[in-house]
């Protein structure tokens, strides 16, 4: 099914409506954020500091306690959503699924009047959709995803994040859609993005070929990304060790995200993408 197929778009529309209902926003930017700013929804009090807006001083409190206290409101801003979609060859078996997830998130973002920017990620960063905004860009966005293909060699997440930061200075919500099976690790890349004050959300996509080893015996193992080969004899013990290594790797990702307050959702092609998005929305959106 094409991404521009009406049936597929109707599924995306349903997700957007759910997002509206769950997140409750209706104006220029509906996405909730942890940052405080000049919105209309009360968030907290804070002591007045030089430079704060006089209009936000709560004069009633000043009358009672003679101290300048300002009201803080939730920031409703024109947020930028960056979708970093892993387009390395290791994603080949689940690339359609990853793009469906990206389509759903991007569609919601564009309909919520957020700015959306999409990159393909492998050994280097490849732009898929330049920053854009508004519902009118949705079809173009879906077309771009449709045309997106896997490329490059071994995924270098750290390099990609540096490249991304070099291209996009503006802070935003960075959603990384990947299997996170990066030989060089993911910690450095996430740390780098977070250090540049991006909000981060990791959407891990793995299928059974990543998680399990159902073949045994003498094999020539070939890396789908680099073409590197190795002759092995895989016994049940080795198969179990591999599966344990994948579990440990994923646990490491979970711990890393938890430690850095990064949102994480793990899924696979066996779960429909809209069910995944619904679950994310019900948990309160892409906020960690």
């Amino acid at each position: 099914m094409l991404f521009t197929d009406p049936v597929f778009i109707r599924r995306l529309e349903s997700l957007y409506l759910l997002a509206r209902k769950v997140l409750g926003g209706s104006l220029q930017a509906d996405r909730k954020t942890t940052r405080k700013g000049a919105g209309i929804t009360f968030a907290d009090y804070a002591e007045y500091r030089l430079g704060d807006d006089f209009r936000s001083i709560d004069w009633r409190i000043y009358a009672k306690f003679e101290s300048l206290i300002i009201k803080l409101f939730e920031l409703e801003e024109d947020a930028t959503i960056y979708l970093l979609v892993d387009a390395s060859r290791s994603m080949k078996s689940k690339f359609r699924y990853a793009r469906e997830l990206a389509a759903a998130l991007g569609y919601i973002a564009l309909n919520s009047l957020d700015r959306l920017c999409v990159y393909g990620m492998a050994d280097t960063l490849r732009p898929v959709l330049d920053p854009c905004r508004g519902r009118g860009k949705a079809m173009g966005f879906l077309q771009s995803l449709e045309e997106m293909e896997t490329f490059g060699g071994d995924t270098d997440f750290t390099t990609c994040t540096r490249e991304f930061q070099a291209r996009r200075k503006r802070k935003g919500l960075v959603i990384v859609i990947s299997d996170f099976l990066f030989p060089e690790g993911f910690d450095a890349g996430l740390k780098y993005l977070q250090w540049h004050r991006h909000d981060l959300f990791c959407l891990q996509v793995q299928d059974d070929t990543d998680r399990k080893c159902d073949w045994k015996g003498d094999v020539t193992l070939e890396c789908v990304e680099t073409g590197q080969t190795r002759r092995l004899t895989v016994s049940p013990a080795e198969a179990r060790a591999y599966e344990a290594a994948v579990v440990a790797w994923n646990d490491e990702l979970k711990q890393c995200c938890a430690r850095r307050s990064i949102g994480l959702a793990s899924t696979g092609p066996e779960i429909p993408f809209d069910a995944v998005i619904q679950e994310i929305l019900r948990r309160g959106g892409l906020v960690a």
Partner: peptide, 20 residues
């Protein structure tokens, strides 16, 4: 006895398993 070719997405994890 020429072994079958198997593609893997996590080659580095296999390396880790067999390095032991």
């Amino acid at each position: 006895v020429r072994p079958r070719k198997k593609a893997t997405t996590a080659f580095f994890l296999w390396d880790r398993v067999f390095s032991e």
